[in-house]
Design a protein around this nucleic acid. Structure first.
Length: 425
RNA sequence: GCGAUCGUAGCUCAGUUGGUUAGAGCGCCGGUUUGUGGUACCGGAGGUCGCGGGUUCGAACCCCGUCGAUCGCCCCA
């Protein structure tokens, strides 16, 4: 006897009510994206490593230490996708999707990041994703965010707010970054160890440090607003006024920066409100949906300058907020009380299922306990098929939940073939 | 990568200061009762106590390592 292999760390097997919640998130996303006319796209789960390293940025945590990379048999370095955006951008360029631009794309599926697992964080996790490529107007940002907001409402998620910021255009962002480095460098010795490191690698991140030692200096740090060009400022104003017009509630988050290099202008996250029920369910993983504008990304992959904006949301995190969804009860349970009726029962369930009624057959195990077993599934209708003592067929039809779909049709179809005594219906 | 807590039947958990063949409930399988019924009773299968070392006359219990889970840091969805 060999040992049973274990699942890979950070992967999960999802079943039952949790799987239903997962499916509910995906189904709702599919429904909403069609309302907004986002088109479905499917991309490979792995790409050449450079697709991600060039697009996301070599110095980011994702690229520098979280990628699942390996050499294939031809010696080429490949990587399991850690996010959707880079792969979508590559697909856009390699397939000439410019011809469809501006194009609204939606996808969902598994992603891989080598991280320490914890609540709401896995090594193989799943996201839904929406992107608008080839649209440089603030209207695109507004539509994308309205869709995200709409989706959360359709999912019934409460207590989550859109946190919105602008990073300005490339020049604004660089000027701001330089000012921040200068500001924090003066007090470098008093910063936390983490932030001293961030000062070199990713100074913007110091702004949302949780360490008290850093927060003292964050308050009077240079503000992005002071570095915005007129164009960048007008862009952001157009986004916020558009959101107001669309009825999307938002809050300005001056210190919100996104980790990846490619973001420009709009950056946003949907975050549970402090102390809300949603915040409690998520633990320390607070962001459920995040994204922004990435006007520089296509060029980093060798394409023509192409404005784009997008977001992604963790399906597992959304599913946690949605809560476990009960699996639907079976509509009709058919019990074979006597093995001689097995073929009749098979005929009955196949007829009912073809009518579009969910049906379960109980014909195994002790005949005596089949009825009880069927009872426990709490069916809408319980049909038993038995033999009388004289050997003639006998069946009954017990309704426990009158409102199941197609009940009258099902009863009519059933009784056209098998008699049911009046006293059992 | 760092820190904390935790790993005993399929599931939820007991297991007294280290002391005989490791238990319960639920679930599963079978039987009896009931006999148009989600009942009750009886029985059964199922555990190398995560794994590997060590201490001890003796380890589920103490120590070390390892794997995994959970929670937090970092980072992110």
């Amino acid at each position: 006897m060999s040992k049973t292999p274990q699942a890979i760390r950070g992967t999960q097997d999802i079943f039952g009510a949790d799987a239903e919640a997962f499916a509910f998130v995906v189904e709702t996303f599919e429904r909403v994206r069609k309302l907004y006319r986002f088109r479905r796209a499917e991309m490979p789960v792995f790409e050449k490593t450079e697709v991600f390293s060039r697009a996301i940025g070599e110095t980011t945590d994702v690229v520098s230490k979280e990628m699942y990379s390996f050499d294939d048999r031809g010696g080429e370095s490949l990587t399991l996708r850690p996010e959707f955006t880079a792969g979508i951008a590559r697909a856009f360029l390699s397939n000439g999707w410019q011809q469809h631009a501006p194009v609204k794309l939606a996808t969902h599926g598994p992603l891989f990041r080598y991280e320490r697992p914890q609540k709401g964080r896995y090594r193989q996790f799943h996201q839904i994703d929406a992107e608008i490529i080839g649209a440089g107007e603030p209207q695109a940002d507004v539509e994308l965010l309205a869709m995200a907001d709409h989706l959360l409402k359709e999912l019934g998620i409460e207590g989550v707010t859109l946190h919105l910021n602008t990073l300005g255009d490339g020049d604004s962002r660089e000027a701001w970054r330089a000012a921040l480095v200068e500001h924090f460098r003066e007090v470098k010795d008093e910063l936390s160890e983490d932030s001293q490191e961030r000062l070199e690698k990713n100074p913007l991140r110091i702004l949302d440090s949780k360490d008290r030692r850093d927060q003292r200096f964050v308050a009077d740090a240079p503000k992005i607003d002071d570095f915005l060009t007129d164009e960048a400022k007008a862009f952001f104003d157009a986004v916020t006024s558009g959101l107001d017009a669309a009825g999307v509630k938002w809050t300005r988050a001056e210190s919100l920066v996104r980790g990846l290099d490619y973001y420009r202008h709009t950056a946003f996250e949907f975050i549970p409100d402090e102390g809300s029920e949603a915040a409690g369910k998520l633990g320390s993983q607070s962001t459920i949906l995040g994204g922004g504008r990435y006007d520089g990304l296509m060029e980093s992959l060798g394409g023509a300058p192409t404005p784009a904006v997008g977001w992604a949301a963790g399906i597992e995190r959304l599913a946690m907020l949605v809560g476990a969804q009960e699996e639907k009860r079976v509509e009709i349970a058919v019990v074979v009380e006597n093995s001689a009726r097995e073929h009749d029962a098979i005929a009955a369930v196949s007829m009912l299922r073809r009518m579009g009624i969910s049906t379960e057959l109980f014909a195994t195990g002790s005949p005596r306990k089949r009825y009880d077993k069927a009872r426990k599934t709490d069916p809408g209708v319980l049909v038993s098929m038995d033999l009388r003592e004289d050997g003639t067929a006998r069946q009954n039809w017990v309704v426990t939940l009158p409102e199941i779909t197609l009940q009258d049709e099902a009863f009519a179809a059933f009784t056209s073939r098998w008699d049911i005594p009046d006293d059992t219906y």
